[in-house]
């Protein structure tokens, strides 16, 4: 399989017939879990991810006493791949969650200062990702699912300091739709949306988080290869271009 994928890439082609700059079909649904304050499901070319948002009342961090808190976690369920063993998140799941966290946080997509309840009490926004099928490019699928879920998150009613689940007072203040575009490098080519088969052959990736105003809000190089300055410049252009396409789906 690996040789087959390489042979195609060397000819400037992909085994599923896509161009290097094409995403696979993307299906996005929201409000798929009624128990959650916000939720979304993404199917990106077979990669299936749920994002669920739960809100809780918590104590603010001492250095930002008037701001809500964002916590992102990712779970690679053993359903998702024969390589995933049940157990606590491994380094890949932790990295994924932390990149999604930075994309949401650094883009300032959520107005955290509006999540103040009263002295010593703020909303804690938990974004939990549950991965059910890993068919490549989990990163971009997870960012899409997280943002879609946040866009449809409602803040529950609070009475005497207790949350009334199922009754809502307002929408979560989300003002940007950041997306991630993960770009692989094979020889001197840049490709978006790597399939599972391509990920096994391509050892260098760059995740780029892009906000609505084209500001770059996060970057992370992944894999054991290296990138030239020209690669990075090309990847930034490609990410900005593709980010608009992805954002239209949200």
């Amino acid at each position: 399989m690996e040789e087959f994928v390489k042979e195609y890439l060397n000819q400037g082609k992909r085994i599923d017939g896509r161009g290097f700059r094409d995403y696979r079909p993307i299906e996005i649904k929201h409000s798929v879990v009624s128990k959650a304050e916000g939720s979304a499901f993404v199917n990106l070319g077979g990669t299936k991810v749920y994002a669920g948002v739960k809100l809780d009342i918590g104590e603010p961090f001492p250095d930002s006493p008037n701001e809500g808190i964002l916590i992102v976690n990712a779970e690679f369920t053993p359903l998702s791949s024969p390589e995933i063993e049940p157990g606590p998140p491994g380094e890949d799941a932790i990295e994924l969650a932390r990149i999604v966290d930075r994309i949401i946080r650094e883009s300032q997509a959520i107005e955290l200062e509006k999540l103040f309840i009263e002295e010593g009490k703020v909303w804690v926004v938990y974004v939990d990702l549950a991965v059910f099928d890993m068919r490549g490019n989990l990163m971009d699928a997870s960012t899409l699912a997280s943002i879609k879920a946040l866009l449809h998150t409602r803040i529950p009613k609070v009475e005497n300091g207790k949350i009334i689940r199922g009754e809502f007072v307002s929408k979560l203040p989300v003002i940007y739709k950041p997306v991630s575009v993960t770009i692989g490098k094979y020889n001197n080519n840049l490709l978006v949306d790597l399939s599972k088969e391509e990920e096994e052959v391509i050892d260098t990736k760059l995740v780029i988080g892009v906000r609505d105003d084209d500001k770059i809000c996060a970057m992370q190089k992944q894999g054991i290869g290296a990138l030239s300055f020209k690669d990075i410049e090309g990847a930034l252009d490609l990410a900005i271009e593709k980010s608009k396409e992805l954002r239209r789906l949200l």
């Binding site: 500001k215 190089k221 990138l227 410049e233």
Partner: peptide, 25 residues
């Protein structure tokens, strides 16, 4: 790897234009 001009580690967060990213690099 300075003699090859190849980047092996890159982590960025914040809010930068593409031009600022390249200038920082």
């Amino acid at each position: 790897m300075p003699s090859k001009g190849l980047i092996t580690f890159l982590q960025m967060d914040g809010r930068l234009t593409k031009e600022e990213v390249l200038e920082l690099l």
